[in-house]
Amino acid sequence: MIEVKNLHKGFGGEPVLKGISTQFKNGKTNLIIGQSGSGKTVFLKSLVGLHQIDQGEIYYDGRRLGEMDDDERKALRTEMGMVFQGNALFDSLTIEENVVFALSMFSGMTKEEMLDRANFCLKRVNLENVNKKFPAELSGGMQKRVALARAIAFKPKYLFCDEPNSGLDPKTAIVIDNLIREITQEFDITTVINTHDMNSVMEIGDHIIYIKYGIKEWEGTSEDILNTDNESINDFVYSSELFRKIKTKL
């Protein structure tokens, strides 16, 4: 479980996040939604400690991030997997080397074991026969999936995904969504996902928080979202004609 208390973060005096508090439970897919530029990426990066926060506290299963020394933080991070919005694959390494990177650094597995694990993870994200290719030789959506394979390779306890299915076709997007939800439940992972994708929100939104103007505007489940009368989230979720129609039908 990850607990966030009163998180503030800004850049050069401009606040982006203005006091966000929430809890992310393990075994659940926690979704962060909000408009482009609302601070989802900043939130996720603050959560893992890539951004130094201005104020607030973050607890990983009771351990406070801000109070850890370098070694404790490194140890915590070996339990994290992260998919960056821009993939952040190591471009000088092959796909296979990317996926096994954390394993070869920390796991003490043999080459064969790592290769098996890489193949398994790549298969789970619907990728085959790309092991020896370099990231630049794959499409954007394929890169995104490699990034997810890399993030889950070392069996993380905490999984962070910044728009894991942006750039994917609807069918592959669902495969990815389902995969994330499956492993979250199966391995009791604390998963936090940034997304714009309303399909994901409805399909896998165990717990959703909606960020607007730097504060948590709304929080609930995918069920709640259908029934809420919060104007601002309705505005956001049902911005398309199609979704409005679906809502009235329901």
């Binding site: 990066k45 893992v48 890539l50 490194k74 140890a75 915590l76 991070r77 070996t78 994290m80 992260m82 960056f84 821009g86 952040a88 694959l89 190591f90 471009d91 990177f101 954390a102 650094m105 920390f106 070392f154 962070f160």
Partner: peptide, 14 residues
Amino acid sequence: VSEQIDALEVMGVN
């Protein structure tokens, strides 16, 4: 700038 350094950091690599 492509966040590869951040990616290393999140993995627990210095």
